[in-house]
Design a protein around this nucleic acid. Structure first.
Lengths: 354, 354
DNA sequence: TTGAAAGCGATACCAA
DNA sequence: TTGGTATCGCTTTCAA
C-alpha cells in the first residue's frame, strides 16, 4: 500500500491539513514542524501529494493540451508542426506547465470522447482538418483554447494566432505571375474532405473546405486574376495528408500533357518539396524547368532552394501557448497576426521559351 | 456553474451510478435509458465525466509521461529526439493513451517536484543527462518506467530499450581505423557534467560521466586500442548540449596545430554535422580532408554524406511506449536491444598523404 | 500555528 | 437493471 498524506500525518501526530500545508503553503507552519513532516514523509516513502487528488480539489491540472486534428504522428513528422510544438514547449516550460498530446481516434465519437477526457486546463488547437467539433467539446467543458486556423464565425473574444493567409499566398503568386507564368497549377492539402490525390474542379476558391487552404488558394487566385488568368484557367490539385508522397501522387502525369503548367504553387513546403522530388526524377530528356513555390519556410526549404513564404513557426506555437497561459487583459491582443515574408530562392524563374 | 453528473441524474430522475454507467459501462443499463440520459446531458451541456475526478476514483490517468532530463525544447530540436517522440506517439495512439511532456525546471528541488506532480501512469525516460534522481522519484511514486540509457545497477526487472552502445561505436571506429587513421579526436556530449566545450583529459573512458556517452567512447577506444593507439593517444573533446554549435565550439582550433587529427568520431550526428560545418568553412587554402563519423543516422545525415551508425529512432520510442503500456509477461522481454548498422557514406576516407 | 469538517466529481461494490 | 453508500486523496475555509 502506498502511503498517503494521512499516513504521514499519523506518523508525525499532526492533522492532514498540516501535512498538506507543509507541501503547498510552507508559510502556514513553523519551519521546524515542516522539516519534521518532510522527514517523516521521506522515511515512509511518501512521494508527495497525489497529483490527481490535488487537481480535483484545486480545480486545475497544470497542463495544457495540444490538439492535432489528425494522426498524432503528424505532429512529429511535419516539420512545421514540430517547430510549432517547440514554441509551445518553450512557453510551457517558462510557465511551469506540462503539455499533453492527445491522440484522436479515427471515429468521431471516440475522438470527441478523447477531447472530453483530456486532463488539461486548456487547449492549443493546431488545425489540420475540421476542428469545429473539437472546439464544441472544449467550449462545453468550459475550457479556454487558442486556435491557429482562421474561423469565419470567430467571436471577438476568441483567442487566435495566425497569419494573413490570403495576403501571404498572394505575395508568392504575384512573384510567379511577375515572372510571366500563366499556365499554373495550385497544389494543396484538404481542398475537399476525402478527395483523392489529383486534379479537382471547383467553381471558385470559396468552395475550398479547409479554412487555411481556402485562404491560401484565394490569395493565389487573386494574383493571377490581376494578370488575366481567372480561376478556371488554373489547375487545382488536391494532396491529402500534406506529405511529399501525397504531392507526388497529386502531380502524377501533370507534366505529360501538351501544354503542361510552367509553375506549381504549393500550399506548403512539404508539398512543394514533393513536387521537386518528382521533377528531379524526370530525367527523360531535356525538360523545360518548372517553377515551384512552397509555404512556411521550413528548414528543409533552404537546402532545396525553394522559393517560399516564411511564417514564424516556433513563434506561432509560443504565442499560442502564451495566449492560453496568460491571456492579455486587452481583448484585441487575443488576436495575433504574425508577419510573413516572401523568400525568393532558386526554385522559381522566368517562363522558359519553348 | 458547470453541470455535474449529479445534475444529469437529477434531471432524468435516476441515480448518479446510473448516469455514470451510461458513460462508462453501457452494458449495465437499457439502451433506452442510456439514450434518455445522454440526451439530458446534451440538453444541460454536460460535457461528460470530469477527467480528473474519474482518474482519482479509477486510480489511473490514461496518459504516459515522457521525461527529457534537459530543456523541453531539446525534445523538439534534436532530430533523434523528435523521431523517438514520433515512435512513442505511434504506440500511444494505438493504445488510446495521451503523452504528457513534462518540462523540468533547472533547480533540482523544483525538478523533483515536477516529476512528483505529473499526472501520468508511467514514464518513458529519455536520458539526456543524469536521470537517477528522476528514477528515484518515479519509483517512490510506484509508477512503471522505461529507460533508454544503459544503467549499471539496473535490476533484471527494469524495462529498457536501447542498443549495444559500445559495439555500435566500435563498428564506426574500426571502419575509421581500417582506413588508416591514427591521429583521431573523439567528440561527445556530457563527457563530464558542467565541463565546457573543448578538449578534456580523462585517464580512461570509464571515467566518462554519462552512461550512453561512456559506452560509445569505450567502443571507439576499443577499436583504436586494437591498432595500437591507446586512450592517451586520442584527443577527447566535450560538446555540452549536443548541438551543432557546441560541436563547432569544441573543435575550435583543433585543426590548427602542427599534427591535427585526420579523423573526428562524434557521439551523435548532430555533433558530426557541426564538425562538417566547421570544416566546410575552412577555405583558407587547400586543406587535407578530415574524416568524420556520426551516430544515429538522422535524416540530415544522408544529405550531408555522413558516415554514421544507424539506430532505429522511431522504433526505440515505439518500443519504449509499448514496454510501458503492455509489458511482456516474460521478464527477459522487458530488456530490448535494438540492432545497429554502420552506414558508410562520403565523410570518411583514407588518410591523406601529407 | 494547528485541527475539524466539508467537499472536489466521480466509480464500484453490493443489495434490492 | 437500478440505486445506496463508501471511498479515491487531497485542499481549504473556519474556529480554536
Amino acid at each position: 500500500m502506498k502511503p498517503t498524506l494521512q499516513a504521514v500525518a499519523d506518523a508525525v501526530g499532526v492533522s492532514r491539513s498540516t501535512v498538506s500545508n507543509a507541501y503547498s503553503r510552507p508559510d502556514q507552519l513553523s519551519a521546524a514542524l515542516r522539516e519534521r513532516i518532510l522527514d517523516a514523509a521521506r522515511q515512509l516513502g511518501y512521494p508527495g501529494p497525489n497529483p490527481t487528488a490535488r487537481s480535483l480539489r484545486r480545480g486545475f491540472v497544470g497542463s495544457i493540451g495540444v490538439l492535432f486534428t489528425s494522426q498524432l504522428s503528424y505532429a512529429f513528422t511535419d516539420p512545421f508542426a514540430v517547430r510549432f510544438l517547440a514554441g509551445v514547449g518553450e512557453a510551457a516550460e517558462r510557465h511551469g506547465t506540462s503539455m499533453l498530446l492527445v491522440p484522436l481516434p479515427q471515429a468521431q465519437t471516440d475522438a470527441r470522447r478523447a477531447v472530453e477526457n483530456a486532463a488539461v486546463d486548456g487547449f492549443c488547437v493546431y488545425c489540420v482538418a475540421d476542428e469545429e467539433w473539437a472546439l464544441d467539446v472544449i467550449r462545453a467543458r468550459g475550457l479556454p483554447y487558442v486556435s491557429t486556423a482562421p474561423r469565419d464565425d470567430a467571436g471577438a473574444d476568441e483567442r487566435f494566432v495566425g497569419i494573413d493567409e490570403r495576403a501571404a499566398a498572394y505575395s508568392a503568386a504575384a512573384h510567379v505571375a511577375g515572372l510571366g507564368h500563366r499556365r499554373v497549377a495550385l497544389l494543396a492539402d484538404a481542398v475537399l474532405p476525402d478527395a483523392p490525390a489529383g486534379p479537382l474542379t471547383l467553381s471558385g476558391p470559396q468552395e475550398v473546405w479547409h479554412p487555411t487552404t481556402r485562404g491560401r488558394l484565394t490569395g493565389f487566385a487573386d494574383a493571377f486574376a490581376e494578370v488575366g488568368v481567372d480561376w478556371a484557367g488554373l489547375t487545382l490539385l488536391n494532396a491529402p495528408g500534406n506529405s511529399r508522397r501525397a504531392a507526388a501522387a497529386a502531380v502524377a502525369g501533370l507534366f505529360d500533357g501538351p501544354a503542361p503548367p510552367t509553375a506549381v504553387l504549393a500550399g506548403s513546403d512539404v508539398l512543394a518539396l514533393g513536387v521537386l522530388d518528382v521533377l528531379a526524377q524526370r530525367s527523360d530528356g531535356p525538360v523545360p524547368p518548372v517553377s515551384v513555390t512552397g509555404f512556411d519556410d521550413v528548414p528543409e526549404a533552404a537546402a532545396a532552394g525553394l522559393t517560399t513564404v516564411r511564417q514564424p513557426a516556433k513563434e506561432k506555437g509560443r504565442i499560442a501557448a502564451e495566449l492560453l497561459l496568460d491571456p492579455p487583459a486587452d481583448a484585441a491582443a487575443n488576436h495575433v497576426l504574425l508577419p510573413t515574408a516572401l523568400v525568393v530562392r532558386t526554385s522559381t524563374g522566368p517562363v522558359p521559351r519553348s
